[in-house]
Every structure is written in structure tokens, then in C-alpha cells.
């Protein structure tokens, strides 16, 4: 249940599902097998762009409370990110680490840094050059979901991969 919830909230996962559905449909009409073969993603994102990463790969992973451990459901996203980065090898990225608001300021800054570092280390272990990855922590300063319960806090405990120059 928890895993399903987090997938449903992950826009990248939805984007990927949409792309697969379209590809399946295209098969029946004997058209190219995937939107990628047309040089464009199904959603029109320019390959190698932030939009491409966000919609077709997944730009963010989520963490448990007070943890920087890469969850099983995040490993798949990071695998795709590593493949994408290895394909677009001229791009460099910044990983932004974030914490939810249920912690104190300095600790959350450190926790965000720890999450960004864990994410970077994972990508490096999958063959992405460390020199292409910068990290930054925003602590609890940049929530994306604003409510006072777990449904928002779980979305705010995140590491977001941002293509350099793209801005977050």
C-alpha cells in the first residue's frame, strides 16, 4: 500500500506508464515501437532535457523519516537516472536534498545533505562520473507539498535531480 501510494504520487512513474501505454497502442498500427524512436518522448519532452528527465525517467526519490537510505522503490528510479545520464553524457546535474518540516532547522539541512550524498553515491555506483554531479541541501526550506500530515511530509523528504542550468 505504502509503495503504491508513493508510486502514484511520483509524476515520473505516471509519465512512464503513459509512455508504455502509448507504445503498446502504436505497436498495433505497425508504427515505430516507442516514442523514443521518433526522436521525441510521448509527452513531447526534448530528449536530454529536464522535462525528459522529470516525465520519462523520474527526477526525484523519496525517503523515510530521518533516513537517507535509498528505498527499494527509489532504486529503480535511480537506475533509470543513471542510464539517462550515461546516455546524455554531456549533461551535468545537481542533486537537491530536502527534508520534511517535522525536524529542526540545522538537523534538516544536514539530513538533506546526507540524502543528496546518498543519491549521488548511488548514481556514481551505476557508472555516472562523480564530477558530473553536484549536491546541495535545502533542509526543510523548500517543501513542495504543504499540509500538516504524513501525505505531505512523505513528498517533501526527497532528493531531486536537476539538470544544470535547468533550475528546480
Amino acid at each position: 500500500m505504502k509503495l503504491m501510494m508513493s508510486i502514484a504520487r511520483n509524476p515520473a512513474a505516471i509519465g512512464l506508464a503513459a509512455a508504455l501505454a502509448l507504445a503498446g497502442c502504436a505497436n498495433k498500427k505497425s508504427l515505430p515501437n516507442s516514442p523514443g524512436e521518433l526522436g521525441l518522448a510521448a509527452n513531447g519532452a526534448v530528449p536530454g532535457s529536464q522535462q525528459d528527465l522529470t516525465l520519462n525517467v523520474g527526477d526525484r526519490i523519496f525517503f523515510d523519516t530521518d533516513s537517507a537510505a535509498i528505498r527499494a522503490d527509489s532504486g529503480a528510479t535511480l537506475q533509470r537516472q543513471a542510464q539517462w545520464l550515461n546516455k546524455y553524457s554531456r549533461e551535468s546535474v545537481t542533486i537537491e536534498g530536502h527534508a520534511d518540516e517535522r525536524g529542526t532547522r540545522a538537523y534538516n539541512l544536514a539530513l538533506g545533505a546526507r540524502r543528496a550524498a546518498a543519491t549521488k553515491n548511488y548514481l556514481v555506483s551505476r557508472g555516472v562520473a562523480a564530477s558530473r554531479i553536484k549536491t546541495i541541501s535545502y533542509g526543510k526550506e523548500r517543501p513542495v507539498a504543504v499540509c500538516d500530515d504524513i501525505s505531505c511530509w512523505s513528498q517533501n523528504r526527497r532528493a531531486v535531480t536537476v539538470v544544470s542550468g535547468a533550475g528546480s
Binding site: A68, R105, A106, L109, A110, A113, R114, R115, A116, A117, A118, I136, S137
Partner: peptide, 26 residues
């Protein structure tokens, strides 16, 4: 080399004490 945060002065005002993050460790 990394993020510095959570600063405070020493009581004599001669030093700043703070945290530094390197490789995710503060």
C-alpha cells in the same frame, strides 16, 4: 569545501563555530 551552517560566536568573539558537510557527514 562543502556546505557550512549552524554558526555561532565563541564567548570572546574571536571564533565562529559551525558545522561543515563533507560527503554527507556534518
Amino acid at each position: 569545501p562543502g556546505m557550512t551552517f549552524s554558526p555561532r560566536f565563541s564567548p570572546d568573539g574571536q571564533k565562529v563555530i559551525m558545522s561543515l558537510v563533507q560527503d554527507g557527514n556534518a
